[in-house]
């Protein structure tokens, strides 16, 4: 072996394209699919958040039954920015539960008016001001963001205590911080302009229209009259354009390829964590898993 380990290791690179309040787009390059997929799976299933896990009903004479409301409460995302300060209830030193491993929320609503009362996530009052329903955050306090729980008629009442615990998405999907976590390969689309020029205007339009995700654009009224690539990232590799080109007898009209070492990630947050934090936590978790293996291996070889 002439190569050393340092020559074989690659330095993965991460380039952020866009960060919004609830989503992030970045390019991961110089690494394998296995790494990209591990990152994706960890972001979905292993980044911890807080979620309501136990619901204690004192009274409920609404139209929805207790277990129905309990399930709905479980699915409400809670702000989990300080998740590191909490520990899992099973690892906690307390016997049942304590402030270190759980947060108590209360819901106590009675309808006294003649019109129906909407009970929403903003009626949930948390004992810990940092762990609140996502919609109750100060930055997004418009009523459209509130999550409906149940509607009450006059005289109906709901009174309960909900206990939020720390958990991960692989135990139950409600703990998953990401709504969408996907990656795509960078598409390489090369048009053969000479072949395109051989097509009639009608054929050009037909060929551009063959793409279901509208990767190409062409308008016969433009002065240039060129077929152009509008957005290569829209390509889903359905190869419809290739088939169309073949039906025109010009199989070399377009060249399509997936660049297998660049991964374009799109991560959308449920609001529980900031999208960039989801990525950072995921990388931390992968690193911790690898060091654990390293430690175990070293121990085993002694």
């Amino acid at each position: 072996m002439s190569q050393t380990v340092s020559q074989l290791t690659r330095q993965p690179e991460l380039e952020i394209l866009e960060i919004k309040n609830d989503s992030i787009i970045f390019i991961l390059s110089n690494t394998d699919i296995s790494v990209a997929n591990a990152l994706r799976r960890v972001m979905i299933a292993e980044v911890p958040t807080m979620c309501i896990d136990l619901v204690e009903f004192e009274s409920n004479n609404s139209v929805l039954c207790d277990e129905f409301i309990a399930h709905r409460l479980g699915l409400i995302p809670l702000v989990s920015d300080n998740i590191d300060k909490f520990c899992y209830t099973r690892d906690c030193s307390c016997s049942d539960r304590c402030d270190q491993c759980s947060v108590e929320l209360r819901l106590n609503v009675k309808c006294t008016e003649n019109r129906p009362r909407d009970v929403t996530s903003s009626d949930l009052l948390s004992q810990n001001s940092a762990v609140i329903p996502v919609s109750s955050q100060v930055t997004s306090s418009n009523s459209e963001q509130e999550i409906p729980i149940v509607k009450l008629r006059r005289g109906q009442e709901i009174k309960l205590r909900a206990i939020a615990k720390k958990g991960v998405g692989k135990e139950h999907a409600k703990w998953s911080p990401s709504c969408v976590a996907t990656y795509q390969f960078q598409p390489i689309i090369v048009l053969n302009q000479n072949r395109i020029d051989e097509l009639t205007d009608q054929q050009k339009e037909e060929w551009v229209g063959s793409c279901p995700t509208k990767v190409y654009s062409y308008s016969p009224h433009q002065s240039t009259q060129q077929v152009t690539i509008e957005d290569p990232l829209r390509c889903v590799y359905c190869l419809e354009c290739k088939k169309k080109a073949e039906s025109f007898g010009k199989p070399d009209l377009v060249h399509l390829e997936q660049k297998q070492d660049k991964f374009i990630f799109t991560v959308e947050s449920s609001g529980a964590l900031k999208p960039e934090d989801i990525v950072l936590y995921a990388i931390q978790i992968i690193k911790r898993k690898l060091t654990d293996i390293q430690g175990q291996m070293a121990e085993g070889m002694l």
């Binding site: 979620c51 309501i52 896990d53 136990l54 619901v55 204690e56 009903f57 004192e58 009274s59 004479n61 207790d66 277990e67 309990a70 399930h71 409460l73 479980g74 909900a162 139950h172 409600k174």
Partner: peptide, 12 residues
């Protein structure tokens, strides 16, 4: 009749 006691459910 519904019980007066508190009832606990798992939210999943």
């Amino acid at each position: 009749k519904r019980t007066d006691k508190m009832i606990q459910f798992e939210a999943r």
